[in-house]
């Protein structure tokens, strides 16, 4: 699995960074970057996103 961020929906508020338990997400000004090697597929960032910009999808761990 892994998380994909849709930058066209994202308002780069950084909320997902604040709930990520393993510090796998970083906000760089207007861009969210996700380290899927660290991600544990907990979906906290999917649930909290005010605009539904994060999605848990298959096959991002390679």
């Amino acid at each position: 699995m892994g998380i994909k961020n849709n930058f066209q929906k994202c308002l780069y508020c950084g909320g997902c960074v604040g709930v990520c338990p393993v510090s796998a997400i970083k906000l760089n000004e207007t861009r969210i970057s996700i380290d899927n090697a660290k991600c544990i597929d907990c979906s906290a960032c999917v649930l909290i996103c005010p605009v539904g910009a994060n999605e848990l999808i298959q096959g991002l761990k390679e």
């Binding site: 508020c13 950084g14 909320g15 960074v17 604040g18 709930v19 990520c20 338990p21 510090s23 997400i25 970083k26 906000l27 906290a44 649930l47 909290i48």
Partner: peptide
């Protein structure tokens, strides 16, 4: 909310959902 600096210095600022 997206603080990472404190986490790098050993203080966990992450929020529970």
């Amino acid at each position: 909310i997206d603080s990472l600096v404190a986490r790098q210095l050993g203080l966990n600022t992450a929020n529970k959902l």
